[in-house]
């Protein structure tokens, strides 16, 4: 870990002020800014220990929980403050009842200790677990060191992505909660030096494309303050299915966040998020379109799964992942349709 200055912000205004410096503004990406916000620290401290992240200033924003630590559910939808801890959101009665896919995505992630620590805002910004990204002695990592290449393409890459990858990067987005947010069409509240803005959660993360080091559409110094998930007739019939080698405490090999609004057996509206095998939190509009207006059957679920993975690109060990992803989605859809609500 490189030396840094530790600052404790007592409110949002102070946090933003501490993070707004000329060098910060000039950073190539939010993750590369010399000032980083510290909440749960479960990603940041880890990456600093292994020398992947080298911020010069840490701004402790935990005291902002008073401003941004609320969970509120009403007719319009669900509001989650960015400093709500994963465990608290997962256990909230309204989330459990009305947004099971969100509760499950949180509940199935990490471990009880990590869920007690990690903030929702930090969780969605969790960075890839690609081993070639995390080990700084590999020279080739376009995400860590732009233009250096990608050691993962021909390497040990079983855990990496097949959706949204580019010829520069096949790192996967490792989280769960974000896939549920993407599926349910959530929005994210952002505060920055230039004020407040709201963006679609789907737009928070960027595809790697030519610039895998950028990762999000946050400007340096911007702070996520909360999430809103719109209400909809599909949120109650929703679930998060996570497939992995271990029963618990492991990142997904494949996951699906699905929500269905059914009219009899016919799909009025479907929401499909995918995880574990995508470059960013993934919403499959293709799968949703394939389901809309169709009876939810094994065949239509399979067709949706085919649509979701039509553009999958595999490298070496990821060859099995489109098939695992399809099966995961089919299973999730059928299970969701069978939910008693």
């Amino acid at each position: 870990m490189r030396p840094f200055r530790y600052e404790h912000a007592t409110d949002r205004a102070q946090a933003l002020q501490l993070a707004t410096t000329p060098t910060a503004a000039a950073a190539a990406a939010h993750v590369a800014a010399p000032v980083q916000y510290l909440a749960g620290g479960t990603t940041l401290i880890d990456l600093m220990k292994i020398d992947v992240m080298r911020p010069e200033v840490l701004v402790d924003i935990n005291a902002l929980a008073g401003q941004h630590g609320e969970i509120r559910a009403d007719d319009a939808g669900l509001r989650l403050g960015a400093l709500v801890r994963m465990a608290d959101a997962a256990a909230h009665p309204a989330v459990l009842r009305d947004y099971p896919a969100i509760a499950q995505s949180l509940q199935l992630a990490a471990s009880p200790q990590l869920r007690n620590m990690a903030s929702l805002g930090g969780n969605v910004l969790q960075r890839t677990r690609c081993n070639y990204f995390r080990d700084v002695t590999y020279a080739a990592c376009n995400k860590r060191s732009p233009g250096s290449g990608c050691a993962a393409m021909e390497g040990v890459n079983r855990r990496l992505a097949v959706l949204g990858v580019s010829d520069r990067c096949i790192a996967n987005y490792p989280g769960d909660f974000a896939n549920a947010l993407a599926a349910l069409g959530a929005a994210v509240d952002v505060e920055g030096p230039k004020g407040r803005r709201v963006m679609a959660f789907e737009d928070l993360h960027r595809l790697p494309g030519e610039t895998p080091h950028v990762e999000t559409n946050l400007a340096p110094g911007e702070l996520i303050t909360g999430f809103s998930v719109p209400a909809g007739p599909w949120t109650r019939r929703s679930l998060y299915l996570k497939i992995r080698d271990r029963q618990s405490y492991e990142f997904a090999l494949a996951s699906a966040a699905v929500a269905l609004d059914l009219d009899g057996g016919v799909v009025r509206e479907a929401r499909v998020g995918l995880g574990g095998l995508s470059a960013k939190p993934w919403r499959s509009h293709e799968a949703e379109a394939a389901l809309r207006g169709k009876p939810l059957t094994e065949a239509s679920a399979q067709a949706a799964a085919e649509a979701a993975f039509a553009k999958a690109v595999v490298h070496g060990e990821t060859r099995f992942k489109p098939e695992l992803g399809r099966r995961t989605l089919v299973r999730a859809l059928l299970q969701c349709a069978a939910m008693e609500i």
Binding site: R129, N131, Y132, A151, E154, G155, V156, R159, D245, R246, Q247, S248, Y249, E250, F251
Partner: peptide, 22 residues
């Protein structure tokens, strides 16, 4: 990683051992 004769999953999140739930 056969190209460089290096252990890649050299941590206990990626080198899997069972957890209690297994």
């Amino acid at each position: 990683d056969r190209r460089v004769a290096r252990y890649v999953n050299d941590n206990i999140a990626d080198y899997l051992i069972p957890v209690n739930a297994d």
